[in-house]
């Protein structure tokens, strides 16, 4: 087994009984619960729209997820994961193991990436299930067949790719800053700024925390720009982070 795979398995082992593990389902679960209650409690409003509700369900789910929950979720997850090592300065034992520093940095990066993938897919599956359940208990709500799973799944993957840059930034920040409050503070501030910038073509397209939300803007070429910026930016941040982490001293 390669050293990277071993390091990754060791990181996965550490997730047992952690809040970080349960957040994978709790964060999208909160959105799903809100969505369900919104349709369930406002049946008349949505029934009177006389249009398929899959589009509304899709847009609500991914805007709540992309604009608010995903950036905060990434912030929290990366801070919790880094906290496993910052607490009691466990770095000194981890980095005294016969493992290359790059393998530790990248395995720790893969974990939040995997978490975003699982959460986004959980959100997608849950949103579709919400529609199916809602139409069975409230037949006036118009969730017609066929179920547009391809639309939901496509946007789930786009959101995942668009979030890569903020995952890599928060991964770097949370490993660098030793306190939980400092690293989450960065994420909360950046997310609040993204609320202001998300509709700005000039600044919103450059602010990494806006990228998942900008997928919802219907303009030609915007999806391509978001994805390229996220992937290239993530690569640059990760390589810079690996270089910094490899040189870091444990005092």
């Amino acid at each position: 087994m390669s050293i990277f795979l071993r390091t990754l398995l060791a990181e996965l082992l550490k997730l047992r009984r952690t809040l970080a593990f349960w957040l994978v389902f709790l964060a999208p679960g909160l959105i799903l619960a809100l969505e369900f209650l919104m349709f369930h409690e406002r049946v008349d409003f949505f029934a009177n729209k006389h249009q398929p509700l899959w589009d509304i369900l899709h847009r609500n789910s991914f805007s709540l997820w992309g604009v608010l929950m995903l950036p905060l979720y990434v912030t929290l997850q990366t801070a919790l994961l880094a906290g496993l090592e910052h607490t009691e300065d466990r770095w000194r034992s981890l980095l005294a193991m016969p493992v290359p520093r790059w393998a530790i940095y990248w395995s720790k990066l893969v974990i939040p990436c995997l978490m975003v993938v699982i959460s986004s897919l959980f959100l997608t599956g849950g949103a579709l299930l919400n529609g199916v359940v809602l139409r069975s208990i409230q037949p006036r709500l118009l969730f017609p067949d066929p179920i547009p799973w391809d639309l939901f799944l496509r946007d789930a993957w786009l959101t995942i790719v668009a979030s890569l840059l903020i995952v890599t930034i928060h991964h770097f920040v949370s490993l660098r800053l030793r306190t939980f409050a400092a690293s989450t503070g960065v994420g909360v501030c950046a997310t609040i700024i993204s609320f202001i910038l998300v509709n700005s073509d000039k600044y919103g397209r450059l602010w990494p925390w806006c990228l998942p939300a900008r997928l919802l803007v219907t303009k030609p070429g915007i999806t391509h720009d978001v994805l390229v910026y996220s992937v290239v930016g993530a690569l640059v941040v990760s390589l810079a982070g690996t270089w910094e982490f490899s040189r870091r001293e444990i005092r």
Binding site: R6, L13, K14, P98
Partner: peptide, 26 residues
């Protein structure tokens, strides 16, 4: 090596802590 206080993951069992080290030390 044991540098200062042992760096253990308190939410894992003793065996899981050792398994974690086994993975890293091959």
């Amino acid at each position: 090596a044991l540098v200062e206080a042992p760096s253990l993951y308190p939410h894992l069992t003793g065996t899981e802590n050792l398994r974690h080290a086994c993975l890293l030390k091959r």
